[in-house]
Amino acid sequence: MKKDILICGVGGQGTVLASKIIAAAAMEAGNNVHSAETIGMAQRGGSVTSHVRIGEASSPLIPKGKCDLLLAFEPSEAVRNLPYLKENGLVIVNSVPVKPTTESLQETGYDGTEMIAYLKKQCKTIAVNADELCERFGSSKYFNVILLGVATGSGELGLSKELVLAEIEKRVPAKFVETNKEAFQVGLQAACL
């Protein structure tokens, strides 16, 4: 299998865990995997990306125009990373914006809707609303697992739901396993809508 997946968002949203789970599941399926993360100062509320390269690859970062799947935790971050997406690639995006502090000071009215509209014009896009999907769990902490469910359900991840779920289970504390399974299921269903 050869697949390039870019995961993007804002520091603190759980992108790193999502990339680790995808990488582990892909390895479990017998692939060679490389990935690269944003670490350090930029983590503090800045834009973050994880590049996951499944199959043989030389560059640690995905070349622009070669990404198969863009998994975006935030609408403007999806647009920022759109140059990485290949011609007929898929974008899975959370439509709920994270407003930067600078935005509140300047009040430019950024609310994410213009980003989703732009994405839909440019490429295949699955937009999901994190707030709505997380509501029943009472916490946005489950959103990364939900988004993994959407990615798996879309078929573009190229990994079976059993493989991905097994890696999720390995990484969450025992008492949260059931809720995470449920969250993953919510994602799988959202992909079909």
């Binding site: 520091g11 603190g12 622009k64 125009g65 403007s76 647009v79 140059p83 600078t102 935005e103 950024y110």
Partner: peptide, 21 residues
Amino acid sequence: IPAPRGLSDAPNLPVRPPVLC
């Protein structure tokens, strides 16, 4: 070589300088 997708027609992207948590 082919040029990657441009963002010239994209909406203005919010800037995200790192901030104290």
